Simulated scan of single mutants.
Amino acid sequence: MQNTTHAVMSQRFEPKDSADDFPTPPWATRALVEHILGAETVRGRSCLEPAAGRGYMATPLSEYFEVVESADAYPYGFCQIKDFLEHPYKAQSHDWVITNPPFRLAEQFVERARLVARVGFAILARTVFLESVGRYEGIFRLTPPTIFAQFSERVPMVKGRVDPKASTATGYGWFIWLKGNEGSTTELRWVPPCRRSLERADDYRGRPSAPLSATPAL
């Protein structure tokens, strides 16, 4: 039977005022720690998830980090309301910043995370984030990611919810910067097939299905 679940496609465009609400399946976050960073390297560390939404990324991060602070510019009912690009976070106030930012704001999130993170920061983004002259000149030419980790299997993201039956034609990868490695070359790695081993039955439990208000935090 054909799967008709609508998943995010690479040609998707969101309005400028959109919350860009495409939650990350929890297994994709576990894959970052288990296969790229290493669970032992983040044990005892703090982490900020600044675009937490309903907590589908923050929850698995809390399985590895000692402290996970969650925030979002929109009130989803899971975490405190703070706009990452506007809130006065102190420099190096968190060991790590890890998030799936709104694609249209991903460059700004990278620059902000560079200030807030002490050890490193990582964003999950479509593979096409590697493209564009603007991003090359703005962030990749002088401060490329330390590691780019491409998923070998697809990471389905559906607007407004996580769905274990969803499919997608879009590729995703983790862009990871380790502080102190600015200006170095980028290591290309692959996230091995791991969904089956990292996915859990309660990953898709019900949560608020939409922001409680369309008004973002200031």
Rank of each mutant, 00 (worst) to 15 (best):
M1R: 14
Q2E: 15
N3L: 07
N3H: 09
T5S: 10
A7Y: 12
V8I: 15
V8D: 09
M9W: 13
R12F: 11
E14R: 09
A19V: 00
D20V: 01
D20S: 08
D21F: 03
P23I: 00
T24F: 02
W27Q: 02
T29Y: 10
R30G: 00
A31Q: 03
A31D: 03
G44T: 00
L48H: 06
E49L: 09
P50T: 03
A51Y: 05
R54W: 08
G55F: 01
G55Y: 01
M57W: 11
P60R: 04
E63A: 12
E63N: 13
E63V: 08
Y64N: 02
E66P: 04
V68F: 03
E69I: 03
S70K: 01
A71S: 10
A73C: 09
A73I: 03
P75W: 06
P75I: 03
Y76V: 02
Q80I: 12
Q80K: 14
I81H: 11
I81N: 15
K82W: 02
D83G: 01
L85F: 09
H87G: 01
P88S: 11
S93C: 09
S93P: 09
D95K: 02
V97K: 04
T99K: 13
P101V: 04
P101W: 05
P102Q: 06
R104V: 12
R104I: 12
L105D: 06
A106C: 08
E107G: 11
Q108D: 04
F109D: 02
V110M: 08
L115E: 15
L115H: 14
V116R: 04
G120V: 03
F121T: 02
F121H: 09
A125D: 05
A125S: 07
R126A: 12
V128Q: 15
E131A: 15
E131Q: 15
S132A: 04
G134E: 07
R135A: 01
Y136H: 10
E137D: 12
G138Q: 09
R141A: 10
L142V: 08
P144K: 07
Q150K: 15
Q150T: 14
E153Y: 13
E153N: 12
G160R: 02
V162S: 07
T170K: 14
F175V: 00
W177H: 00
W177E: 01
W177L: 00
K179E: 14
E182H: 08
E182I: 05
T185R: 13
T186E: 05
E187A: 11
R189N: 07
R189W: 08
W190K: 13
V191M: 04
V191N: 02
P193Q: 15
C194R: 08
R195S: 13
R195L: 13
R196E: 15
E199R: 14
R207M: 06
P208M: 11
S209C: 10
A210Q: 15
A210I: 10
L212A: 11
A214H: 10
T215W: 12
P216R: 10
A217R: 12
